[in-house]
């Protein structure tokens, strides 16, 4: 029997908006890794003394470094929104025998996010 099998385009994720959004979501992981590298460079600079820390601050102010970090920031926010948004579908939380509504699970994630962000900001800025 001869059948027809539709070939998959190499860049198949350009064919649908939802597929493209998915690939962008997956690529946010690259910026997660970049942020870790950037923070480790900061730790290294602080560890090496005040002069080294100042060099890190100077370099972080260069336009290309700011550009990278602004893009990374946007991808991190995409990660946050998609991760928290999908969380209630991956986990079922029960309280007193009843299923906690998905909205409450999402809200709890954002609440934890705000609290942790405030703690970190307070630690760094105080």
């Amino acid at each position: 029997m001869t059948v027809y099998e539709r070939p998959v385009h190499l860049l198949w994720w350009l064919e649908r908006r939802s597929y493209l959004l998915f690939v962008l979501r997956e690529l946010s992981s690259v910026f997660v890794a970049w942020t870790v590298v950037y923070l480790l460079l900061l730790v290294n600079a602080v560890s090496d003394g005040p002069a080294s820390y100042q060099r890190f601050l100077d370099r972080s102010g260069e336009w290309w470094m700011v550009a990278i970090n602004v893009i990374a920031m946007l991808f991190l926010l995409l990660h946050v929104v998609t991760w928290f948004g999908l969380a209630p579908r991956a986990m079922v939380v029960k309280a007193r025998g009843r299923r906690v509504p998905p909205r409450q699970i999402v809200a709890a994630h954002y609440f934890a996010w705000l609290v942790l962000s405030a703690i970190v900001a307070w630690l760094v800025l105080r």
Binding site: S18, F22, L86, R89
Partner: peptide, 26 residues
């Protein structure tokens, strides 16, 4: 499965297979 989520968007009966798969991963 990489949780693209399109299966659940396509389902005409309101099933969430993508969610089922992630739950089973856990």
């Amino acid at each position: 499965c990489t949780f693209v989520g399109e299966c659940s968007a396509a389902c005409p009966k309101g099933v969430d297979p993508a969610g089922a798969i992630q739950r089973y991963k856990l």
